[in-house]
Amino acid sequence: MTNLDAILRALTTSKVEFLIVGGVAAAIHGSVRGTSDVDFVYSRSTANLARLVSALSAAHPYLRGAPAGLPFRWDVETIRRGLNFTLVTDVGDIDLLGEIVGGGTYEELKDQCIRVQVFGLECLCLDLEPLIRVKRAAGRPKDLEAIAELEKLLELKRRRS
């Protein structure tokens, strides 16, 4: 189980520049489908990489699905050399994305977000329409039902406003 409260608290108190995407963003917009991990797009600035490392180090991040004992150092150099990381941590599975298909980087996406108040914290969450766009752009058959639900939510929101 993913402890969203703990993850969001660790990131926001360390002032990590990140935004919520994926299934958790969908849930924020009203999706009733489940998701087992949490996806973030993070800023690749050097200062932010250091904040990210500091924020999550206590949760012992490790590569999800990698064999035990594989050398993996959670540090700025490791993140700098990679881009997208699927991690298992003490507080749940986390996908850290430096860039997403159809959306781009944190800097390109941050103006397409809404600010949400959750667990006493303020976070950026990708807005519904751009969330649909990136899900469409990913082109994964498994996302079709999720996209249909998100588009229905968009229709309902427009009908209500």
């Binding site: 969203l4 849930a27 924020i28 489940g34 998701t35 087992s36 949400v116 209500r160």
Partner: peptide
């Protein structure tokens, strides 16, 4: 849609 953002996330965590 009647729920707050936080309530929606709490429901997601309960489901998990």
């Amino acid at each position: 849609l009647q729920l707050s953002h936080e309530h929606r996330l709490s429901k997601l965590m309960n489901l998990q």
